[in-house]
Design a protein around this nucleic acid. Structure first.
Length: 410
DNA sequence: AGGAGTTAGATTATGTGGCA
DNA sequence: TGCCACATAATCTAACTCCT
């Protein structure tokens, strides 16, 4: 069976490099670091995201985050007892990360993200010591960073949603911005290809080994994903083998959830051929929801002077029953455009929720995503030109990570 | 006869609801 | 998740009709 119009894929170099990582990485295409099925990376990103929500300053003024295995498992919906092992990989990879910040004028900074990652198995505690230099980029942003995006990232109920989100957003960001189509991207996947990427079909058996034939096929320049899925992969490693089940239980679930909760909206067309109109591929249309926000919108609301601000802060702290910092109140006000009603409303909603781990974060997200016409997902840096969207930021880090791996393999 | 355009029917898949 | 049953849909192909 053959797929028409399939795009292609990957150098030997990449394969060699991926041997030490988990399956998904093996399937990544050149230029793309697809982390969705690449569990280590997926986990890593999530752990990093979580860590960034918990950054505090150590006595030496160094940003530090402490995570407990238990909470990671809980928040990320991971079961089983292998987390400690996973974290080893996460730590290794995390320690090699760099952060890249580029300004509009072309100047840039590149810096290591993390200095030391330590894990204490007894208490199941992981401590991440960030480099002091990046303090400005993570500590001050903590509020925005955490609040706007983590809830979204973690709110996906279906694992497929997150993976699909990752696949699509990572590809979308790598597509050149096209003025004609604006912020709409078309991303095509063969059915077998996406099944592999999503992890609906696995190529590793329960012992973690990859069949030789599959390995061989993966080393080819033109990978025949259909051949792998249909002929080489053991039946037991395939779930949602039937297209209709895949669509109903994976694809549609994920697309709906992404549209509902994330900052991209997704539509797809099916590519058919052959008798019966067999579906051989999916043509995703990805749209960034908030790229057309007029910058003027933010400026319309004047920043209150100090006296007014203090007054507002008092009100906020009054509304919210729990202890919050003045800086948090400020952050909320800013997000709410100094509209105290929005904050009150968000708090009311927050009270009705269960398991909010980060109240301020949740509220900010609520204010920005749900009840404002022009949600803006931005991570504020020290200077405006250093403003980076969360996803781009994450992606940037992934890219850097990727670049590093490339260097290592040379 | 040979080519182009149509079309009915065959063939193969998918969509859905529902059940274990 | 997997799979069955029934309904529906998509595409292919051989046969048929025109036309030059």
């Amino acid at each position: 069976m053959f797929i028409k119009g399939r795009e292609t894929p990957m150098t030997k170099n990449e394969i060699a490099k991926s041997e030490k990582t988990m399956f998904p990485d093996i399937l990544k295409k050149s230029n793309f670091l697809i982390s969705s099925v690449y569990r280590a990376s997926l986990l890593e990103n999530k752990v990093l995201a979580l860590a960034l929500t918990k950054v505090r300053l150590s006595d030496q003024g160094r940003p530090v985050a402490t995570l407990r295995t238990k909470e990671i498992k809980e928040v990320l919906h991971v079961t089983g007892n292998a987390m400690g092992t996973y974290l080893k990989d996460v730590a290794t990879s995390l320690a090699g990360r760099t952060m890249f910040i580029e300004s509009a004028d072309g100047s840039f900074k590149c810096m290591s993200l993390v200095g030391v990652v330590s894990y204490e198995s007894g208490s199941g505690t992981m401590e991440i010591k960030f480099e002091p230099e990046i303090k400005d980029y993570i500590y001050d942003l903590k509020a925005n960073f955490t609040m706007l995006n983590i809830p979204m990232m973690l709110s996906f109920r279906s694992g497929w949603s997150y993976r699909l989100y990752e696949l699509l957003s990572s590809r979308a960001y790598h597509s050149k911005y096209d003025k004609e189509t604006g912020n709409v991207f078309h991303i095509k996947y063969g059915v077998s290809e996406i099944k592999l990427h999503l992890g609906t079909v696995q190529i590793k058996d329960d012992k973690g080994k990859i069949n030789r034939d599959i390995q061989r096929e993966l080393e080819k320049k033109e990978i025949d994903y259909d051949y792998i899925v249909n002929e080489l992969v053991h039946e037991k490693l395939k779930s949602f083998d039937k297209w209709c089940d895949f669509k109903r239980r994976v694809l549609d679930v994920a697309v709906n959830e992404i549209n509902e909760k994330s900052d991209i909206s997704v539509k797809y067309d099916l590519m058919r051929s052959g008798r019966g109109g067999k579906i051989y591929g999916i043509d995703f249309e990805v749209t960034k929801k908030d790229m057309n926000v007029e910058p003027t919108v933010e400026e319309e609301v004047p920043t209150p002077d100090d006296v007014e601000l203090d007054d507002l802060i008092d009100k906020v702290m009054d509304i919210i029953d729990e202890k919050i910092k003045i800086s948090q109140a400020k952050a909320l006000l800013k997000v709410a455009n100094y509209d105290i009603n929005k904050i009150e409303y968000a708090y009311e909603l927050a009270c009705k929720q269960e398991n909010i781990r980060n109240l301020i974060g949740w509220m900010t997200s609520a204010i920005q995503n749900g009840y404002e016409d022009n949600p803006i997902h931005k991570v504020k840096g020290q200077a405006p030109e250093e403003t980076v969207e969360f996803d781009e930021y994450m992606e940037q880090m992934r890219l850097e990570h990727f670049a590093n791996m490339e260097k290592e393999s040379e």
